[in-house]
Amino acid sequence: MRAFGRLVLFALALSAAGPASAQSLERQVGDFPEKLEIGISTDEISITSDFRGADLTIFGAIDGFDANLLAQGKYNIIVVLEGPKDNATVRKKERVFGIWVNTQSMTFELVPEAYSLSSTRDIATIAPPRDIANMGIGVDHMRLVPLGFIGDGSSLGEFRNAFRRIREESGVYQRDPGGVQFISSSLFKASVRLPANVPNGVHVVRAYLFREGLFVAAKALPLRVVKTGLEQAITRAAHEQPIVYGLFAVTLAVITGWGASLLFRKD
């Protein structure tokens, strides 16, 4: 078995820009002279059926930096790989007449199916927590907006915490304070983890640059994750041609059952 395939995608993202940067979404705040550039060698990743998770490496550079501040380590970078969004329901079990039953539930609107965060250091020390929270960076600050009627809202916190905890325990939400490293003066390398159960679809790589605790610039690149292989073909058939798939499953059963009875017949 080829377990733990390590997939490293990289590109030098100098200011000359890579092929993917044409689609990048840029954000520049205030009058800071610094600019942030990031790049990945491809905008599409194909994942084979024996995929067990991998690290994605993103390269980036700070343009127009202040050499003094850089030398003192005053620049900090956060890189996030955010998966496609979908509604998610959290359910809570309670004991009813001696058995455990799902009694309460809460649905959060459009939350990412995967979220990997990498930073130069713990995000709480990069900028004032309020700023980080306002920008919605990190699992703890992710916007979890409940759908529909939730009563007096007293259980909101408990459901949000349970959601974050379960997603982190299952490995689809991860953080790595120290995953971003400077490899030369202004060139940095970020590795974010693609979990084994990485969802299909368009992911977004976002990079944020902070200078002395102030947000300077952000940059985002789309990344398509496409699963390939037999298993993926089966999944696609099951969802796109469900009746044919069902008929095929039945035919397979008929052939197997009948075949065995012919094969093992004594006469």
């Binding site: 089966i234 099951a238 969802h239 009746i243 798939y245 069902g246 499953a249 039945v250 197997t256």
Partner: peptide, 28 residues
């Protein structure tokens, strides 16, 4: 057989790989 087809087309929950492994071992 009817249930398999209806389950496959409404709930998408028939796992053909799992079913095939089970039935091969099962008939033997």
């Amino acid at each position: 057989a009817y249930t398999v087809i209806v389950q496959a087309s409404t709930n998408y929950t028939v796992d053909i790989v799992l079913a095939f492994v089970l039935m091969i071992a099962g008939v033997i």
